[in-house]
Design a protein around this nucleic acid. Structure first.
Lengths: 196, 196
DNA sequence: GTCTCCAACCTAATCTCATTAGTAAGGAGC
DNA sequence: GCTCCTTACTAATGAGATTAGGTTGGAGAC
């Protein structure tokens, strides 16, 4: 009948909204189609099935997280930058639980998610440059940082912290411990992550 | 027809095996029933639907993790005990990916999972006793420990560590940083986690 | 202005799965 | 041997994904 203004991007975006509001596990093509005022087979003109929708949401979320973290570390360096990055990451997960959940599915090899995921890791790697760690230590440090951030955010998102004590403060403490564990920053920190 | 020796426990156990081998997302009543040589409606004599199966797998996995960690810390205390606990936890997740994944679903309030989950947290709390932290600091420390362990294990399980560098060593480093961050152990550590 | 063509929508049909209702039989206790 | 409960069954319903094939609005060619 009438032409909707659907596109892959708009379908993925609507799917992300649905995942955030109803939970990723309730994201179905049927609901998505209803939301878009269309019958579910029609979605196949824009995406390649439910798996593709989820992959698209994941890739888009990864790009958004990357952008949020990048924006948060602008004009900051060293410990301050790491804290800002961690904070932005957590904020995204809290604000977009469904999209964050989609990010966690293992990406198919060479998938749409692989590139933005790599970029995000590279960004964290750059934040650690001031510490001037060896190549191997840098890898260990990034893994530690990613693990702590991801684990905390995931436990918080899934309601794993039962006790009524500020989770924000717990997060700060965790970051403080990790950063301290990376050792002292050798030289005086410059301004900006890399900048002009 | 002939009586199978099915019970809730055997169904949940078979479900756990299926989740470990094929992935939690491929655990269906249809496959489970086929595995057990039975038609899927017959499973309802032992469990209350797919949701109940997943909850049962989660609760059983939590009990197994608890047992594994408990066994690992026997006769150990302080830093050594924390390392052993973290190691046992990781080992379980690597050996039983489907069961571990099932554990991560948010438990319904007052569900079968709640008790073993609490016990596991309490166990970690006890491991931190030698540090004699304040009540609040203990909570922050447990959250840090849980976050780091869970995050690392989850990233490793989902294949998030692309680079070819020992993940075991990364894990050791992470634990070392965290433990150091808890501060020095005040008194001489006793033997055992608690008792004689 | 009319024609052509294709992308974007549709309906119909199939398949897998979960779940409920109602039926039959094995075997334990009497 | 009889009774009854448990456990398995078949049948049926309904949700959802996906494929096949038809229809049409409207953009661009002429």
């Amino acid at each position: 009948m009438s032409r909707r203004g659907l596109s892959r991007a708009s379908v993925i975006s609507a799917a992300g909204d649905l995942a955030d509001s109803d939970g990723l596990e309730h994201l179905t093509l049927a609901r998505l189609a209803a939301e878009l005022g269309v019958r579910s087979p029609s979605l196949y003109n824009h995406v390649d099935g439910l798996g593709d929708v989820r992959a698209g949401v994941a890739a888009s979320a990864l790009r958004e997280v990357h952008a949020a973290v990048l924006s948060a570390v602008a004009g900051r360096s060293g410990e301050e930058a790491v804290r800002a990055a961690a904070g932005a990451y957590r904020r995204y997960a809290l604000d977009h639980p469904g999209r964050y959940a989609a990010m966690q599915r293992p990406p198919a090899d060479g998938s749409e998610q692989a590139a933005p995921a790599d970029e995000l890791v590279q960004l964290f790697a750059r934040l650690l440059e001031p510490w001037q760690l060896s190549e191997e230590d840098t890898i260990h440090a990034i893994r530690a940082l990613r693990s702590a951030i991801h684990g905390f955010v995931e436990l918080e998102r899934l309601g794993g912290f039962g006790i009524d004590l500020s989770t924000g403060r717990s997060y700060d403490r965790l970051m403080q411990i990790l950063i301290a564990g990376f050792g002292p920053v050798p030289a005086a920190a410059g301004s900006g992550t890399r900048g002009p």
